[in-house]
Structure formats: structure tokens, C-alpha cells
């Protein structure tokens, strides 16, 4: 799945669980109030309140999972190497670059430099979801 699709999915997931959490918190507060006031104590304490807490815990867990969902991010790397002295230069590939393509002369020895490798590398951001 593309990065955009994953980002969309992450946003939707977080939003859904946040909505459930926002709805269930007032319910829990209401039930706690009923318990404190002694209204229908038996049902509230044995059925409604545990059920509401369970839903809140599930939504909270979902929210946490959504926040931790990592969206892979990549950067392109091109290694240009001198065919004579082995001097290396790491850059970003341009459209049309290919492996073994001749590039500008080596700044050290002046001999031609060639594209040695082109690859993509995963960038790990310190903040999850990056």
C-alpha cells in the first residue's frame, strides 16, 4: 500500500477510536454519578459500568495502536565512485541516472567517476508514524 493510503488509514483509525473514547467517557461519568447517588446500583456496578470501561479500554488501546502505527519513509541514495582512486560521493539520484553512468571528474584525481549504486534506504524517524 502506498504511503498516502497508509497515512489515510492511520488518520481514519485514530479518528474512529478517538470518537468512541469521547462518547464513552461521559457515559462512564454518568454511570459513576448514578453509583454515587445510589441509582440502580446493582445493574450499574455489575453490568453497565464494567461494560463501559471495557469499551473505553478497547478504544484507548486502538488509539494507542493507531498512534504507534509506523508509516515507512524512504530516501534515495546514489553512490558515485571514482574508478581510479576509489573516492566516494553520496548524493540523491536524478531522473535518468543509472548504474555505471559516467559523472563529473573525481575532485581528488580528476579521473571519471561512475555511479556505483542506486538504492532506497528506510529513514527511521525518532517520532513514530513519520
Amino acid at each position: 500500500m502506498s504511503r498516502e493510503a497508509l497515512l489515510k488509514r492511520k488518520r481514519r483509525w485514530i479518528l474512529l477510536h478517538l470518537l468512541v473514547l469521547m462518547l464513552i467517557i461521559p457515559v462512564i461519568m454518568g454511570l459513576a454519578y448514578m453509583l454515587a447517588e445510589g441509582i440502580d446500583t446493582e445493574r450499574v456496578s455489575t453490568v453497565y459500568l464494567p461494560l463501559a470501561i471495557l469499551v473505553a479500554a478497547y478504544a484507548g488501546l486502538g488509539l494507542w495502536k493507531g498512534y504507534r502505527m509506523e508509516i515507512p519513509n524512504y530516501r534515495l541514495v546514489e553512490i558515485v565512485k571514482c574508478t581510479n582512486c576509489g573516492y566516494e560521493n553520496v548524493t540523491t539520484p536524478k531522473v535518468g541516472d543509472y548504474i555505471n553512468m559516467e559523472k563529473e571528474p573525481c575532485p581528488k584525481c580528476g579521473r571519471p567517476m561512475k555511479v556505483f549504486l542506486i538504492y532506497r534506504e528506510r529513514v527511521r524517524s525518532s517520532k513514530k508514524g513519520g
Binding site: 549504486l117 538504492y119 532506497r120
Partner: peptide, 12 residues
């Protein structure tokens, strides 16, 4: 099918 990954590039 995606742009060559670093792991594969290093396996050459």
C-alpha cells in the same frame, strides 16, 4: 519491483 533496497544493494 520497487526501487532497489539497501539490503539488496549490499548483497551484490
Amino acid at each position: 519491483l520497487s526501487i532497489m533496497s539497501k539490503e539488496i544493494a549490499l548483497s551484490i
